[in-house]
Simulated scan of single mutants.
Amino acid sequence: MNLADLAPRHFLWRMEGDVAIIRLNRPERKNPLTFDSYAELRDTFRDLVYAEDVKAVVIASNGGNFCSGGDVHEIIAPLVGRDMKGLLEFTRMTGDLVKAMLQCTKPVISAVDGVCVGAGAIIAMASDIRFATPRASTAFLFTRVGLAGCDMGACAILPRLIGQGRAADLLYSGRSMSAEEGHQWGFYNRLVEAESLEAEAIAYATRLARGPTFAHGITKTQLNQEWSMSLEQAIEAEAQAQAICMQTRDFERAYRAFAAKQKPVFEGD
């Protein structure tokens, strides 16, 4: 499958080499999500599993903000009138976006500027790497609208990133986590100035795209699957995964380049 010419209706998409850049496109409202953009993002990340032309993904900010979460008028208002079956259809669909991001086999880098709240904070959380500007403000604000903090995998993933106590603080209170807190706690990998945020994220993604991309997919799979394994199971799973990678041509290319004192050129097979 080739996604280079993808023309989504509900977000912006462009390719820079092997890197796909995604950005929500409602900057006048700080880029909220709608039913349609949720579903289209979910379907896009599902398709990325089969997209040989995309090696890495950057989720960028737009207009000085990342994402303000679910649109109050287009999502929250209609949900008030739904029955349990309809509500569960929605919450499962939003969770499916996170599952698709985790299972897409490509490194996903979020470049966060300004507002990053609600489902926007979840999208950043579900990414593999997170860059942010000093003015990034991140909040899992579900309790502030009368909901539980356990949304879209937050209670499973966030404690693994920043620790149980810090996650509990954010998920109970719904307060904003500053960029500096996020960096100190390990939520954000790097803080960069706004004018260089996207360029640095794309440069990082490009370096990954030039690496052994089949092996990157294995790394991502193991990072996610080993959450629920014992240490003994994880070591065995990694032994099998590494043996698979040793059958790739990239492994052979790396050896031959080392023997010739050259830099390996990986091709992802």
Rank of each mutant, 00 (worst) to 15 (best):
26 R>S: 07
49 V>F: 15
35 F>Q: 07
38 Y>T: 07
14 R>T: 10
25 N>W: 08
15 M>I: 11
44 T>C: 05
30 K>P: 00
32 P>E: 06
44 T>V: 05
48 L>N: 12
28 E>Q: 12
48 L>Q: 12
29 R>F: 06
23 R>K: 10
23 R>H: 07
40 E>G: 05
44 T>W: 01
26 R>F: 00
47 D>T: 11
25 N>D: 08
25 N>G: 03
45 F>G: 01
40 E>D: 06
46 R>G: 13
42 R>M: 08
7 A>N: 15
13 W>G: 02
13 W>P: 04
46 R>Q: 15
35 F>H: 11
29 R>W: 12
40 E>Q: 10
22 I>Y: 01
39 A>F: 10
17 G>S: 14
11 F>V: 02
26 R>A: 03
45 F>P: 04
16 E>V: 10
20 A>G: 13
11 F>K: 01
33 L>G: 00
9 R>Q: 14
28 E>K: 08
28 E>C: 04
49 V>K: 15
23 R>P: 04
30 K>Y: 01
47 D>I: 07
11 F>P: 00
48 L>G: 03
21 I>M: 04
7 A>G: 13
37 S>A: 05
13 W>F: 14
25 N>F: 04
42 R>N: 11
12 L>T: 14
33 L>K: 03
46 R>C: 12
46 R>H: 14
45 F>L: 05
17 G>V: 07
20 A>W: 03
47 D>S: 14
7 A>Q: 15
7 A>C: 14
36 D>R: 14
11 F>C: 00
34 T>V: 06
46 R>A: 13
44 T>P: 00
18 D>I: 05
19 V>A: 02
22 I>W: 00
28 E>M: 09
14 R>A: 05
25 N>T: 05
29 R>N: 11
34 T>G: 07
47 D>C: 14
40 E>Y: 09
32 P>G: 08
12 L>C: 13
17 G>L: 11
18 D>Q: 15
10 H>T: 09
25 N>A: 04
24 L>N: 04
39 A>N: 08
17 G>P: 04
12 L>E: 11
8 P>W: 09
34 T>S: 14
40 E>P: 09
27 P>S: 09
10 H>P: 10
8 P>L: 09
44 T>K: 02
36 D>A: 12
30 K>E: 05
9 R>L: 10
25 N>Q: 08
34 T>P: 03
36 D>Q: 13
42 R>S: 09
10 H>Y: 11
25 N>L: 04
14 R>P: 08
20 A>L: 09
41 L>T: 01
40 E>M: 08
11 F>T: 01
45 F>S: 01
50 Y>R: 13
30 K>M: 08
33 L>V: 02
35 F>R: 05
39 A>W: 07
32 P>Q: 05
34 T>E: 01
48 L>R: 08
30 K>Q: 12
29 R>P: 09
41 L>W: 01
43 D>R: 13
27 P>T: 10
45 F>V: 04
25 N>C: 07
33 L>M: 09
7 A>H: 15
48 L>S: 06
8 P>G: 12
9 R>A: 12
31 N>R: 06
36 D>L: 06
25 N>V: 03
28 E>F: 06
38 Y>A: 06
19 V>E: 03
31 N>P: 03
13 W>L: 10
44 T>R: 01
12 L>Q: 12
40 E>W: 12
45 F>Y: 04
29 R>L: 13
14 R>W: 06
7 A>V: 14
50 Y>Q: 13
40 E>K: 09
39 A>H: 13
46 R>E: 15
40 E>F: 07
23 R>I: 03
29 R>M: 06
